[in-house]
Amino acid sequence: MPKPSKEQKFNALYSEWVQPLFRFIYYKAQDQSLSEDIVQDTFVKFWDKMETVGEGKEKAYLFASAKNLFLNKIAHDKIVDTHMKTQTEAIVKSPHYDLEMTEFQQKLNEAIEKLPHKQREVFLMNRIDGYKYREIAALLDISQKAVEKRMSQALLALRKLHDKI
């Protein structure tokens, strides 16, 4: 069988990782177009570096690179968490959630949006992507203990919703 070309290899990795990468950034950014831009930049950069990234290391490279691009972006634009909670963002985002939400779902969504982005990404990677703590730790390049701590903090914050209702 002939060796796949660089482009074929790139296309395969793109199809495999584009959506998970997008969600990964979206959990932090909560902004569709910003997240798309970062995913675009990540793959453009990856094309240049593909030959130097070892076989099997592509996923880790893509996530690390997307994370760095995101951090540079917020450092550059000074868009911290507060920016992401503006009125317009909330309106843009609402159609993605179920139209008929119970009061609890609504409160839960709001509470998730308000979590610090480090806790939010761990919680959503676990809930939506079904990643194990071990996998999240590898993708975020932090220890599993740190993941568990963030998950506990997220759960504690969300648990308080019950006291309010």
Partner: peptide
């Protein structure tokens, strides 16, 4: 909390048009 948060739908990208841009 677990069940309801599983129901959250996160947007996705149009992967073909993004690939064209890339």
């Amino acid at each position: 909390i677990g069940e309801q948060s599983n129901k959250i739908t996160v947007p996705s990208v149009n992967q073909d048009s993004l690939l064209d841009k890339i």
